[in-house]
Each structure stands twice: as C-alpha cells, then as structure tokens.
Design a protein around this nucleic acid. Structure first.
Length: 282
DNA sequence: CTTTGGGCCTGGACGC
DNA sequence: TGCGTCCAGGCCCAAA
C-alpha cells in the first residue's frame, strides 16, 4: 500500500497522540510477519516513554527513551489505528500484530493482513546501521535532492527509469503509483533507460517527484483498499491519478482520439504494472 | 558491480 | 454458491 505520502500521513497523525506518552502496556500477537518479531519487544517497551515519531523512507520510527526505537514498515497492506479509551488488555482482531497502550488510555494497534510488513525494536544509537535502513538512498523531499543528484543516481544504469525510481537504495519513498505519476508529469517514458535521461529531463523529473509527493501528502495519501490514516480517515489522492490504474482512459489534457489510440497504456515492468501515455511520454 | 526473477502472504474480483 | 485464476500499494535474496 503505502508509499512516502501515505507513511508521512500516518506519522503526522501519530505525533500528537503518541509523543510524550508513556507506554503502559504492550502485546505482540504474531511471531512472524515478513521477518520475525523480537520476542522481547512487548516487555522491552513497556514503561518507556515515546519521545518522537518520525519517518525514514517508508519506515515509521517510534523513538523511545533509554535508546530504543520501534520500527514499523507497513508493507503492502499494513495499517495503524488509534483506539480511544482502550482496555488494558487487547483482544486482537484478525491480523492485529501489535498493541501499545499509552498513559492517556489511547492505544495504537498495528495490523497487516498480508504480513509483508516489518516490526522490529532496535537501539536508537544503532538505527543508522540497521540492515534495511543502512542502504537507503536520499529523501526526495529534502532540499538537497536536486536534478543534478537525480541525474547522478540514474547515470550508468541500463535499467528502465521506472525500475530505477522503485529502487530504494537509489532514492526512497517512491513506489509503484508515484513512479508512474511522476514520469507522466515529467513527460518521460517509463521504458527509457535510466542512463538516457538527460540532465534537463532529470531536472524536470526531480521537480515532478517532489510535486506529486507533496500533492499526495496534502490529500492525505491514496486509499486504494487497506490504507487509512491513524485516525481512520481515508486519503483521496487516488481521485487525482493522471495515469495510475487508468488504462484505456484519457490522460489529463488529452486531445487525441481515444477510440484510435487506446488512451493510457498498461505494461508490466519487473513484474509490476506501469501506466503511461505513449504520446506524451518519450 | 548490476539486473532479473521468484518468493513471501491474504483477500478481493472475476470467469465459468 | 463454489471453485480456480489472477491481481494487488513492498521488499529480500539467489542466481546470472
């Protein structure tokens, strides 16, 4: 499910209810999601205080005192919900994996039906060396992420630019939806080899990535199915997709004869759907 | 080193 | 109603 805008929206929704709160009870319900959940997680976090909630790439970081950080990745179908006036002991619904009850009596529940998510506990001081964080590329919304940086990332790679954008070791946060959307905005074909993206195109693409991610955050992310804000609200950026999941339809500003051209095209790259307009993207 | 393909899971949509 | 097939927002790992 969740790409950078969705994860960022969840993080923002968790800050006020979680920060400064002491964890008064914790339960873990399934031993294994994508990776094993540490057996000591529940006992280790109980009694600790949440200092801050942050995001790195698509990872949610809940920083506690005593040098501990809870890492949550939502995978494809993960979601976090807040329960007000929660009981001290949680009766898990199907697919609930983690329950954290706070001093305020609000609780946070992490669920993930497809179990592609990650739940881990690490020392905050060792976070930057944690296996999946260590090799991540730059944050696209940072000021120092520029067209020149993107050009450098893409240069020398024979792989299609769409696949390069999905590679989190090159650039984080962009997933299957926003890769298609950013390439459409930039007028670049998803099939173009990364090394054939010119400096001028890299500049445009850099701007398009920032633009589409910011717009999606503003809209509270995209809800296709499972994704929810921590408050339970859905996002609505899916209503503004230019190309994603719109095969056969007209792209924004389309002037061609859809009956003849077939409109937006779907293709498969790296086993995943890509959507684009062959007439506007090259 | 880069690139490719399979695997991990569940559930919903669809065709018969 | 039921059964089989395909598909889905992410990521890891082995193999080429």
């Amino acid at each position: 499910m969740p790409e950078l805008p969705e994860v960022e929206t969840v993080v923002r929704g968790l800050r006020t209810p979680l920060e400064t709160q002491k964890i008064t009870a914790a339960q873990v319900f399934s031993a294994k999601i994508r990776t094993p959940i540490p057996v000591h997680l529940a006992s280790a976090v109980t009694g600790r205080t949440i200092i801050s909630v942050a995001r790195r790439a698509k990872y949610i970081l809940i920083h506690l005192n005593d040098d501990l950080t809870i890492i949550i990745h939502l995978g494809m179908t993960g979601n976090i919900r807040l329960v007000e006036k929660s009981p001290a002991t949680w009766s898990p619904e199907k697919h609930d994996h983690l329950f954290l009850r706070l001093h305020s009596k609000t609780a946070m529940v992490f669920s993930d039906p497809r179990r592609f998510g990650v739940l881990d506990l690490v020392k905050t001081s060792e976070l930057s060396q944690w296996k999946s964080i260590r090799d991540l590329g730059p944050e696209p919304l940072e000021r120092n992420f520029t067209g020149a940086v993107l050009k450098n990332i893409l240069s020398g790679r024979k792989t299609a630019v769409k696949l390069a954008l999905l590679n989190q070791s090159l650039l984080v946060g962009v997933g299957n939806i926003y890769a298609s959307e950013a390439l459409f905005r930039a007028g670049i074909s998803p099939l173009r080899p990364a090394l054939k993206v010119t400096s001028a195109q890299a500049e445009t693409l850099c701007g398009a990535i920032k633009e589409v991610l910011r717009a999606a955050i503003k809209a509270g992310g995209s809800t296709l199915k499972d994704y929810r804000h921590a408050s339970g609200e859905i996002g609505f950026f899916q209503n503004r997709f230019a190309v994603y999941d719109r095969a056969g339809a007209a792209c924004p500003g389309c002037t061609c004869d859809i009956a003849k051209t077939g409109g937006i095209k779907r293709l498969v790259q790296g086993g995943r759907s890509t959507f684009y307009c062959p007439r506007k993207q090259s």
